[in-house]
Each structure stands twice: as C-alpha cells, then as structure tokens.
C-alpha cells in the first residue's frame, strides 16, 4: 500500500492507514470514537421549555404594555393593565419552574450569590430577579390606579414600567443567548439569530395572550385591531428569521435532529404550520379591516402554541445534536 501523498508512512516496513494518508477529499466527513458522544447534552426538559415560553411571553407583554402606556391612548388602557398583570403572573410562575428544575432546589438562592457576565445563566437569574421585582411594583401601581382611578398611581406605574420593560426585553430574548452560549452544535451555530427568533416568538405569544385577555365587548375592538396588526408584523419577521435559522442549520449539516420524530412533527406542524396559519388569519383580519369571528381567538391560540412548541423543538433537537459526535466535530472545525 503506497501513500497517495507520495510520502512513506512513518511506521517502518508495515504501512498504517491513518486519516492523514488519505487525501482530504477522500477522507470520511468525520471520524468518530465508536459513534460515542463528544459532548454532554443539557439535562433540561419540559420545565425549562415551559419557562422559556412563559418567561418570554411575560417579558414581551411588559414591553408592549409600557409602549402602549407611553403612547397615551385612553382606549389602550385595558391593554396596558392586562399587559402588566400578565407580566407579573409570568414572573411569579417562572422562578417556580426554574427552581423545580434544579437538581438541588434547596440552594436556589446561590443563583444570586455572584454576578458573572460571562454566564448567560447568571445574567438571566439577575434579569428574572429584577423583572419580577419591577413587574410586581408596576402591577401593584396599576392595580391601585385601576381601583382608585387615581392618576398618581398611573404615573407611578408608568415610571416603574420603563425599567420593567427593559428587563422584559431581556426576559424575552436572553433564553436564546442561554442556549447559544453553550457547546451544543444546534444552539451554538446561530448565536445572533436564536435570541432574535425567541424575542419575536415571545412577542407573538404576548400579543396572542393579550388579545385573548381583552374584554369581549365592542369597546375593545380598535385595540384588538392594533394587536392584529402588530401580530402580523411580528409573525412576518418571525417567519423570515425562522427561515434564516433553518437554512443556517441545513447549510452546516446540523439539521438532522429536526428531521427525526417526534421533533420533526413539532417543527413542521407546531412551528412552521402554526406560525403560518396564525399569520394568515392576522393578515386577513388586518387587510379586511374586520374580525373573522372565532378565527381571531384561534389565531391567538395558535400563536401561543407555536411559540411554546418552538422552544420545545429547539431544546430537544439541541440535546440530540449534542450527542451526535459528527455534528459536534463539524461545529468545532476550522
């Protein structure tokens, strides 16, 4: 056996077939160690997928409520109040989910022991802590304003609402950073697109939830129309970013876990079809200028469902990609 490169193999009279003896073009795409994982997968499961969804929705709801409040339209006041209450509800549920997921839950408070800016988890812990506190204050002021019809409380809510909305913007997106700042190939390959996708998905979910929470009477119709328009815009952006994310994965040959059941079903039906369907209904409502009856709430529910399924799909597909050594090596190659 002669070396195709023309150099003698270095091991004496007998020849060793090493990868280095084979021209690069003929080498197998990757060689692995008995196909065993080269990386460890995250241990996160459904609790974390639910948290990504609820925390993101709460964060985006706070942003939307604050913007609506600052825009100052009286007709939007029910929306502002519901946005702040939804944000508070989400920020109360979130820590419960996160602590339940810890392997030593009794030490949850160690999350607030240090500030470490290289850790997306540390940034996230402090974000959730501030978001919860500020959301509590804003919702309390909002409740007092609603109960006493006192303008001073409305002003307080508006003042506290601004930092709460900044924390909310982080809440809606940092979970994408949390995933991307790991060595898991599927997550690490889209460090900018993943937070963007999660932010848009959070926004769609918050808009859907707020639309469902608004009073049913005629008075809320103009507000609902505005939410429809925002849902349309957010949905369009989401579809565009989702396409970019998927093509980035396919281009780098990391998309295999998306094509395996049951993730495949979630991705195709839950994420792609769900997002598209709610987008179409919102478009029809916006272009037609009127409500399509029960299709409106259905679109909101689909937006919520597809937002949750997106997190689950990304989480579980990522865990699979981590234990595929060929994907890990493809990611970690110059």
């Amino acid at each position: 056996m002669t070396d195709p490169g023309g150099e003698r193999a270095p091991y004496g009279r007998r020849t060793v077939a090493t990868l280095g003896d084979v021209p690069a073009a003929q080498r197998p795409a990757t060689s692995t160690y008995y196909g065993l994982p080269a990386l460890k997968p995250s241990d996160w499961g459904w609790l974390i997928a639910v948290y990504f969804f609820i925390g993101g929705m709460a964060g985006a709801a706070q942003v939307i409520a604050q913007v609506a409040d600052l825009a100052g339209r009286k007709a939007d006041r029910p929306l502002v109040a519901r946005g702040r209450y939804l944000a508070l509800a989400g920020s109360l549920v979130s820590p419960v989910l996160l602590i339940a997921d810890l392997h030593t839950p009794s030490r949850w408070y160690n999350m607030l022991r240090i500030v470490r800016l290289t850790s997306a988890m540390s940034i996230g812990s402090w974000t959730l802590f501030s978001f919860g506190t500020l959301s509590g204050l804003a919702a309390t002021a909002q409740a007092l304003a609603d109960l006493h019809r006192a303008p001073v409380w409305r002003t307080v809510a508006r003042i506290v609402g601004t930092p709460a909305a900044v924390a909310g913007a982080l809440m809606a997106t940092y979970t994408g950073v949390l995933l991307a700042a790991t060595s898991t190939p599927l997550w690490a390959s889209v460090p900018r697109l993943l937070p963007t996708l999660f932010g848009l998905s959070s926004t769609s979910a918050a808009l859907g939830a707020l639309s469902l929470l608004l009073p049913h009477g005629r008075s809320a119709q103009p507000v609902r129309r505005r939410l429809d328009l925002l849902s349309l815009l957010s949905g369009l952006a989401e579809v565009a970013v989702l396409r970019q994310v998927e093509s980035a994965w396919r281009r780098r040959a990391l998309a295999e876990p998306l094509d395996q059941r049951p993730v495949q079903l979630g991705f195709r039906v839950g994420v792609r079809a769900g997002t598209a369907a709610s987008l179409v209904i919102h478009a029809l409502q916006v272009l037609g200028g009127r409500s399509l009856g029960p299709l409106g709430p259905a679109a909101s529910l689909m937006a919520l469902a597809s937002s949750f399924i997106l997190r689950a799909v990304v989480l579980f597909a990522g865990k699979r990609s981590a234990v595929r050594p060929e994907d890990a090596f493809r990611m970690a190659r110059t």
Partner: peptide, 24 residues
C-alpha cells in the same frame, strides 16, 4: 456568544417596541 446574542436580542425587542409605538 453571550455579548453578540444579548445585543441581537435587545435590538430585536427595540424593533418590536418601535413598531408597537408606531401602531399605538
């Protein structure tokens, strides 16, 4: 990947806030 990710996320939400401000 932390810093580029956070900046991309915040830029996204800034875009959402601007769109919402225009609509509201």
């Amino acid at each position: 990947r932390v810093r580029p990710g956070l900046l991309a996320g915040l830029a996204t939400m800034a875009g959402v806030a601007i769109a919402a401000a225009v609509v509201f």
